[in-house]
């Protein structure tokens, strides 16, 4: 650490110690002033956040960590910055909100230092130091924001998947899953979990997967279908596939996909009829021995 930096650090520590309230107030005020920072946070929340951040900043600066590593290496400070970002991400704030919040903090800090000295050189060093510390905060908050938004998107996608793959009870011991859209890995996961859970709770004997709404069946889709069928069979229920349209049937034949071990029907009602008949004469579900 150079003499200038040590000096600046000293000033900054002093400013935070003596003017902690001021810094927090000022920061909240600056954020409110710039409406772009509105993230559905109340003033009370902003204030609470500010207090925590100021405290952690103070704690960090008093220690030995180098300024540019402070935000990433100091656990408390890092956590405070991450939470600041996640709070805004979850509140649906614009991406710039976190960055602008950090910039406003810089301003508030510099103003606090000015309360303690008006020496140009000192102020300049202090400004440099504040930049060094908070630039890392800006970077971290941005990364966290992005991850936070992506997590929300993932969760919403999953929820959408669940809503769009309902399991319906068509008959006593007969469940049906009408699939709409393509059967990719994530949808297969949702279908399997929902369907198998429903089998367990309704003690179903036959399940019908209707693929009328599935636009194309290629080897990947067929693989996912087979996985679902196998899982259902392991549980002890039967799995029929209905809604195979003529072009789909042709594609399946052309691709050489072997669905001969599965009961298939053109329509859901045909499959339901087969299911009811099957239930009337109980046979066990035996997994065919795999051909070598």
């Amino acid at each position: 650490m150079t003499i200038d930096e040590a000096d600046a650090r000293h000033h900054l520590c002093g400013a935070l110690r003596e003017h902690a309230e001021y810094v927090a107030d000022r920061w909240v005020h600056l954020q409110k002033e710039r409406a772009a920072l509105d993230a559905g946070l109340t003033e009370a929340q902003l204030r609470e956040e500010a207090d925590v951040l100021v405290e952690q900043l103070s704690s960090g600066l008093h220690g030995d960590l180098a300024a540019d590593r402070l935000v990433t290496a100091h656990a408390g400070l890092r956590q405070a910055v991450i939470e600041l970002s996640l709070r805004r991400a979850r509140g649906g704030a614009a991406p710039s909100a976190t960055a602008l919040a950090v910039l406003a903090l810089k301003e508030a800090l510099l103003e606090a230092v000015q309360l303690g000295t008006s020496d140009a050189a000192s102020l300049y060093s202090a400004a440099l130091l504040i930049n060094r510390v908070l630039d890392a905060a800006g970077a971290l908050s941005f990364a966290t924001y992005v991850e936070g938004r992506e997590e929300i998107i993932r969760r919403q996608s999953r929820q959408l998947l669940e809503v769009s793959t309902p399991v319906v009870q068509l008959w006593d011991r007969v469940l049906a899953v009408p699939l709409v859209g393509t059967l990719d890995t994530s949808r297969t996961q949702v279908v399997m979990e929902n369907l198998l859970g429903a089998i367990e709770s309704s003690e179903a004997q036959v399940t019908i997967i209707d693929i009328t709404g599935v636009p194309t069946v290629d080897t990947a889709v067929a693989h996912h279908l087979m996985q679902t069928v196998n899982a259902v069979r392991l549980m002890g229920a039967d799995c029929f596939i209905s809604g195979i349209r003529p072009p789909i049937a042709q594609t399946i034949a052309q691709l050489g996909i072997d669905l001969s071990a599965i009961v298939t029907r053109a329509t859901l009602s045909d499959a339901l009829g087969a299911a009811i008949a099957l239930i009337a004469s109980p046979v066990s579900r035996t997994i065919p021995v795999a051909a070598r």
């Binding site: 549980m235 002890g236 035996t286 997994i287």
Partner: peptide
């Protein structure tokens, strides 16, 4: 479980 009969 090839060859194993199962029930719910």
């Amino acid at each position: 479980l090839p060859g194993v009969a199962t029930a719910v």
